[in-house]
Simulated assay, not measured.
Amino acid sequence: MQQIARQVRIEQRVVVRIAPQRPAARQNMLAELPQRAIPRRLEETRKEKCVPLDGIAGVQTGSGNRLVLFLRDERMISVNLEKSCRARDFYSGFYVEKNKDGRLCVDRDKLQSRTGMRCEVEAMRQLVEASD
Rank of each mutant, 00 (worst) to 15 (best):
P23Q: 03
K110S: 14
K110M: 09
Q60A: 14
R17L: 09
L53E: 05
K83A: 14
R108E: 08
E32I: 04
K47N: 08
E43S: 06
V79L: 04
E48Q: 14
I77W: 13
G58L: 02
R108Y: 04
E44M: 12
D54T: 04
R41E: 10
K110P: 07
I4Q: 07
N80Y: 11
V8L: 13
I18H: 08
F94W: 04
E43W: 05
E48V: 11
R13H: 06
T115P: 00
Q21S: 13
G55P: 01
E32Y: 05
P20E: 01
N28G: 09
R118I: 07
L69Q: 03
M76I: 05
Q2T: 13
I18W: 11
G93H: 06
V14C: 02
G116E: 08
R75P: 02
A57M: 08
E122L: 12
N28R: 11
L81G: 02
L42S: 00
R118H: 11
L42N: 00
M1L: 12
E32W: 02
C50N: 04
Q21F: 04
A87V: 09
E82W: 02
L81R: 09
N65M: 01
A37E: 15
C105S: 05
L127Q: 06
M124L: 03
E11Y: 06
F90M: 01
I56E: 03
D73P: 10
V14I: 14
A5F: 02
A31C: 03
R86S: 13
D101E: 15
R75D: 07
Y91G: 09
A19Y: 03
R46Q: 05
L30C: 04
E44S: 13
N80M: 10
Q126R: 13
A87M: 06
Q60E: 15
V128C: 00
E74F: 10
V14Q: 07
T61D: 13
Q3M: 08
C119H: 09
R40S: 05
K100Q: 11
N65I: 00
A24K: 11
R17T: 12
F90I: 09
R41H: 14
R36N: 12
G102C: 07
C50W: 06
V121P: 13
L67R: 07
Q21D: 14
Y95E: 03
